[in-house]
Each structure stands twice: as C-alpha cells, then as structure tokens.
Design a protein around this nucleic acid. Sequence first.
DNA 1: ACCGGAGCCTGTTAGC
DNA 2: TGCTAACAGGCTCCGG
Length: 278
Amino acid sequence: MPELPEVETYVRALEPLLTGKTILTAEVRWPRTIAFPEAARFTDLVRGRRFASFGRRGKYMLLGLDSGETLIVHLRMTGELRLLAPAESDSGSAVNPPDKHTHVLFALDTGEVLRFRDMRKFGRIWLVEDTASVVGKLGPEPLEEAFVPQTLAKSLAGRKANIKALLLNQTVLAGVGNIYADESLFLARIDPRRAGGSLNLEEIERLHLALREVLNAGIENQGSSLQNYAPPTGAKGGFQEKFQVFRRGGEPCFCCGAPINRTVLGQRSTHFCPDCQK
DNA sequence: ACCGGAGCCTGTTAGC
DNA sequence: TGCTAACAGGCTCCGG
C-alpha cells in the first residue's frame, strides 16, 4: 500500500536518521526478502558500508552506500523500516525484541538497529551496482517536469485495458497505486472502466494534472495511513482524511451525493462516482 | 506488444 | 461464540 507519497515521506524521514552511519553487521531471518544477491553475499557486502545518499524511484527507496552500491528497498504492502535506539535494540533485549515479522536487521555503529519488518513478506531488498537492473523498466516519474500530458498520451494510445489498470501499471507511470489511482481519476472526472486509448487529449490533460495534484497532496500530508503504513518516525500520515472515493463504497459522493460505486478492475478494488466520472 | 489471471503472504473482517 | 472464507493489494510470471 505504500505508494509514491508514502515512499517519498519515508525517504525524507530516513535521510537525517541514517546519513553518515555505518552498518556493522546485517542479519537476514527470511532469506526471500533479499531479492539480490543471495542472502549470505548480501550480508558480506553491506558490512562496514556507510549510508551516503537517499533517493526514490517509483515506489522503490534508493539508499546509496559509500561503496557505490545501492540498497534498494520496496515495502510492497506491509513492509516497514524502523530505527531503534541502542537501549531498545539490543537483540536480547526484553524492552523491544525483534518479533516474528522482523526479517532483516542492520546493526549500526551508533548502537542503533535498523529493522525491516513485513507481516505479509512481500517486501524486497536488493543490493546492486546498477540501479537500472531493478528500476530500469519503470515509467516516468509523475512529479518530474519531464512528465507532460504528451508523455501520458503516448503510453495510452491504442491501449484497450481500462485506465485504472493502466495507472497501476508501473511501466506506464511510476509510483501510482490503488489509492492514488482512484483519487486521481475522481479528480479528473474520468470513469476508471474506460479503455485507456479512448481518452481524448483534454481528458488526458485533466488526468495528468489530477495525478500531480493528488500525489503532491499525499506528500504534503505525509502519506496515507491505513492499517499498516506509518513513516519510520512513527508519526502517521494524514491523507486518508482527504479521500474522496477510496474505501467509500456506498457512501455519498462529496460532490453530487450519489453513492460511491465499488467494483474490481485490474484485480484491485476500485471506487468511483458513477455520476461525476464519465 | 498487450492483456488478464494465478500466485506469493498473513492479519483482519464478514458471514454462517 | 467459534469456525471458515473472503479480503486487502504490491509485483512477477505465465498463457492466450
């Protein structure tokens, strides 16, 4: 569920917490979490490395190390990173022992421990020299200036899949997930069931603007906190308070009062106003 | 090239 | 009240 605004919030929070700190050791408890390289090699390679840079591509966090390699973290649905103070991070500590959902631990030179937890075990971590091997196929960043309506128009041209499914497709656009897809389509007043290729230029311009507005509003509110997501500082995001349609099936549209429709598109629950969105 | 569906996971919720 | 089944949704893989 962490999407672009949540991951951006995460990276901004991690930067001051981790900059300049060194990984003494890493422990992998659920090897499948490490997508690349093999877990034993992963722990070898990160040992003694210092956090040097912080970035994001789509829903991927890019944590640059002083070796030149990049630690890439994808939280998928329920992943989280927590930095624990020395007093509470002692592995034998009764204060705050790692639970069964803690899959990777990084002991830092400050005595702190960075824990990767993930209830659903979908989250993944890579250590690569070339980030393109992981994020190279992603579509454009929706908040960068290079992303213009024409970019979107090219990706949608001739596509028969519904626009909702295409917005979730990370090769069309990087970083949009179920929440921000539904909210953007509502703001753009476009029916999520429409074939991507059926949108005219004016609708694509509306959608382009809506995507940027909704994603920026998400970042300004530090993301959306539903069941599982909270930034590493522990403070919760607030964008869930601003939802117009997401998880509002059956409730009245804030714009026209019609009950919000809930259906499934692209294997995802989809929420829209049948009157406002055409 | 494109599209839709299965599978990966487990805690929470809905329904009998 | 207690059990089971559906649901949540990020992504990859596979068949058509």
